[in-house]
């Protein structure tokens, strides 16, 4: 099973359990609050609502982009999905099976979902050669040393690093882009179905970033992968993603098909994020900041809509009633009263 990549046949992926229509990953009501626990002599501290009720699906074969400012819960969501940290509430279903249930053990899940981290250096063990790093996962899952090394060499070749030159090197002997290629190869070594890319290209310079993004697109076709692509770079997310989820203060602000979301954002926060992208057209450049201030403290989120203190279209309604994710088009939802004609928001054009 270790050697050889899955070539997606025209009819779908061979490891599908619930057919192509069933989401590969389904996250329901995910909650993670960090807080200082009450202990001996210490009172319970403030609670940081890092992820506060997040629902989303990842469709088989797609790339789901997740964007948001720092601290909005993107990376926490990734770590919760990966089961690196335990959620306080919520379910994670992988191809219809609850993770940790009889049908899908934690180890069985981890074989199918892998992650690429942002910091290419910190995510490689400085004492292991590149091939040992990549071969570690297959060995853990029972491959012989020889098979694991062969697998490592194949993958190195696939990510564009010549095994003869790079297999015996140590992380400090590689450039940032080369290290991130090794990280990608390591993530692919277990032949996963879902790859979570947590700011995987953010630390690379632009030319290298483009190469790695193209590599990711190639690998996706080749291995029949599904991506969760987390980034703060809107251009990159637009380039990579089929659908995009915008997060704000631990909640989903807007979720929709990439083109629709970038062309006609329904949530004022998405609109502000898009307006903050530097324009390539000198005449269209603006001096005024589209979004002022920092995001409010997730320890004490504002009442009502979490975005209302910074929102240009805020109304009295937004200050006390929190919108849920409301339908705003085909497969497009936004957590804003503006998309609900019945909400009574004064800015809705009649």
């Amino acid at each position: 099973m270790i050697i050889g990549a899955p070539t997606p046949p025209p009819g779908g992926f061979p490891r599908d359990r619930g057919g192509p229509g069933q989401p590969l990953l389904s996250v329901k009501g995910l909650v993670k609050h960090f807080g200082v626990k009450k202990g001996f002599l210490t009172k319970a501290g403030p609670i940081v609502r890092a992820v506060d009720g997040v629902d989303f699906d990842v469709v088989k074969g797609e790339t789901l982009g997740i964007v948001g400012e720092s601290g909005c819960g993107k990376s926490t969501t990734a770590r919760l999905v990966m089961q690196i940290i335990a959620p306080d509430a919520g379910d994670i279903l992988f191809d219809g099976e609850r993770v940790g249930s009889q049908a899908l053990s934690l180890n069985g899940f981890r074989k199918q979902v892998q992650m690429v981290f942002q910091d290419s250096y910190a995510s490689l063990n400085p004492r292991l050669t590149v091939e040992d790093t990549i071969a570690f996962g297959p060995k853990v899952h029972g491959a012989s040393g020889r098979a694991a090394t062969t697998r490592a060499h194949d993958l190195l070749h696939r990510v564009g690093l010549e095994p003869a030159r790079f297999a015996g090197r140590y992380p400090h002997e590689l450039s940032g882009g080369q290290r991130q290629r090794v990280n990608i190869a390591r993530a692919l070594a277990l032949d996963p179905r879902l790859l979570i890319l947590d700011e995987a290209v953010s630390a690379l310079d632009k030319s290298v970033e483009a190469q790695v993004l193209n590599l990711l697109l190639d690998l996706k076709d080749e291995f029949g992968l599904t991506y969760m692509f987390i980034s703060h770079d809107l251009n990159v997310v637009r380039f990579m993603s089929n659908r995009v989820m915008v997060m704000y203060l631990g909640k989903v602000a807007e979720f929709g098909p990439s083109e629709a979301l970038f062309e006609t954002p329904k949530h004022p926060y998405t609109g502000a994020l898009l307006a903050s992208m530097p324009s390539m057209d000198p005449d269209a450049r603006t001096e005024t900041a589209p979004l002022t201030g920092d995001p409010p403290n997730p320890i004490n989120p504002p009442p009502g809509c979490r975005f209302n203190p910074r929102c240009a279209k805020s109304a009295a309604l937004c200050g006390h009633k929190e919108p849920t994710l409301l339908d705003a088009g085909v497969d497009h939802r936004a957590a804003c009263w503006l998309v609900d004609p019945a909400s009574g928001h004064p800015r809705i054009a009649a």
Binding site: I84, M115, A122, S123, G137, L190
Partner: peptide, 11 residues
């Protein structure tokens, strides 16, 4: 991160 990466590889 590399210890976390090892954990998510199921070791």
């Amino acid at each position: 991160d590399y210890v976390e990466a090892a954990r998510i590889s199921g070791a």
